[in-house]
Design a protein around this nucleic acid. Structure first.
Length: 422
RNA sequence: GUGGGUGUAGCUCAGUUGGUUAGAGCGCAGGAUUGUGGCUCCUGAGGCCGAGGGUUCAAAUCCCUUUACUCACCCCA
């Protein structure tokens, strides 16, 4: 404690074993599922020009205003550690002209994001997201497929108590009208709103809808609803999506007051909310953003995406997931000569799979068996002076306590056979 | 940025109204007649009691400051 005074930066979340094994399992499930649906992985830069986020997320959002890790590098460029994944994916989509390679692009990513916020339960300054984006598809079938896929992911992990909340935010045709309507409504009730909401009236009035201040909530109960203001196109898109979700039996709640903190969303927007996560209850969220690709300088391309909060997801998953495969045989040398004999076998056997364990300290048989037991191996292979004399190792089945002999000259293949039985 | 809570062994925590060398459980290491694990028993290692200052004959304990963690607000995954 006294000399380890260099510690992680506040809020930077690190994953230690055995938790890291659980993370791997969940991540593997995510990859398998998404690749099954035709997604391919993108591994992108963690550091981007600051301008990317200012333009994509929205200059007026809290994320850009006060939550980014922004600094200038040695050549005085303003750089930012990515606070989310979508902006970078869109940047890459444009930069590498992915739209020209194929009409539809389904991409996913896994990795850390950075936001300078006060850490608390389920929120860190370095946190991890599992995310995916689909480019080039306007159909509500795409929205539905992606939402169902997410629900399948949660189901496969036995996550219970997550509810899908759905809304449509309209498009460039109908949202401005609604925005003005809402602005008027809020303007007339300024006194009843909190300071933040008053500020929001001009900047982003939609966000006043999901303010948690009780008084604001009450004030907003009779506010105009976006669902009443949607244009025909948006209305059909949304009802089409709901119809598909009904068809496949995916439960959802339409929440007309659900809005997003990021400016780029259009039409479908959603959150998967967990009941037992405390205040940070959104495990996954996302929606459609049909304008962003063009706004970032690309060809107009519709898109749909989501991000899952990895830490939050892991809090919802029971810790009873089975550990990864463990070694099968503990090699137990008694003395330097035996160790010397076993070492080449050990390194040969573990080339491709965890078959054996071998300790290099000269320890008593008793403590080596103790360790073998803790490691959960099925067999202990004992080599002491007797065995060296006879040219045979003594193999003990840790469960049945049966012991049998294995000649040195075929130890390797014999252990390999035992491993395949494990 | 604003509030509240908590910092004692690797982990989970005890520690009386301030009073000797600071405790338990788990974990770790070793042992219980020569080379046989899990159960039991014994022994051991491991702490500047988060840090700094103050009050006192005496501080883990009281006061101040600071820092870290944590929960909530804000916002978000």
């Amino acid at each position: 404690m006294k000399k380890t005074n260099i510690k992680t930066v506040k809020g930077f979340n690190e994953i230690l074993p055995p938790e890291s094994f659980r993370w791997r399992l969940v991540e593997d499930k995510f990859r398998t599922l998404l690749e099954g649906y035709g997604f391919a992985e993108l591994r992108l830069a963690l550091l981007e020009p600051t301008e990317l986020f200012a333009r994509s997320i929205g200059g007026e959002t809290d994320i850009v205003e006060k939550e980014m890790y922004t600094f200038t590098d040695r050549s005085n460029r303003s750089l930012t550690l990515r606070p989310e994944g979508t902006a970078s994916v869109v940047r890459a989509y444009n930069q590498y002209s992915l739209g020209k390679i194929s009409e539809i692009n389904k991409l996913y990513y896994v990795g850390p994001m950075f936001r300078y916020e006060r850490p608390q339960k389920g929120r860190y300054r370095q946190f991890n997201q599992l995310g995916a984006e689909v480019f080039g598809e306007t159909s509500f079938y795409q929205d539905a497929e992606t939402l169902v896929m997410l629900a399948q992911f949660f189901h496969a992990l036995s996550v219970k108590g997550v509810v899908l909340h759905l809304n449509s935010l309209g498009c460039e045709a109908c949202r401005p009208t609604f925005r003005d309507q809402l602005k008027d409504y809020l303007d007339q009730r300024q006194e009843a709103l909190c300071g933040d909401c008053r500020r929001r009236i001009s900047e982003n009035p939609l966000r006043a809808l999901d303010c948690k201040n009780p008084q604001c909530r009450e004030t907003v109960t009779d506010a105009p609803l976006i669902s009443d203001a949607l244009c025909d196109g948006c209305r059909q898109h949304f009802s089409g999506l709901c119809g598909l979700l009904d068809d496949v039996g995916l439960d959802y709640q339409v929440n007309p007051k659900l809005v997003r903190g990021l400016d780029y969303y259009t039409r479908t927007t959603f959150e998967f909310l967990a009941s037992d996560l405390g205040a940070q209850n959104a495990v996954a969220a996302g929606g459609r953003y049909d304008r962003l690709v063009e706004e970032l300088g690309g060809k107009a391309t519709p898109a749909f995406g989501f991000a899952i909060g990895f830490e939050r997801l892991m809090m919802l998953i029971g810790s009873e997931i089975a550990p990864l495969s463990s070694p099968c045989v503990a090699l137990v040398p008694l003395g330097e000569k035996a160790l010397r004999l076993l070492f080449p076998i050990h390194v040969e056997l573990n080339r491709e799979a965890p078959v054996t364990t071998l300790g290099f300290q000269q320890k008593s048989l008793k403590s080596q068996l103790k360790k073998a037991d803790r490691d959960g191996v099925r067999y202990a292979l004992i080599v002491g002076s007797d065995e060296l004399d006879q040219g045979e190792a003594l193999c003990r089945n840790m469960r049945t306590k049966e012991q049998f002999r294995l000649p040195f000259d075929r130890l390797g293949e014999a252990l390999r056979e035992l491993y395949h039985e494990c």
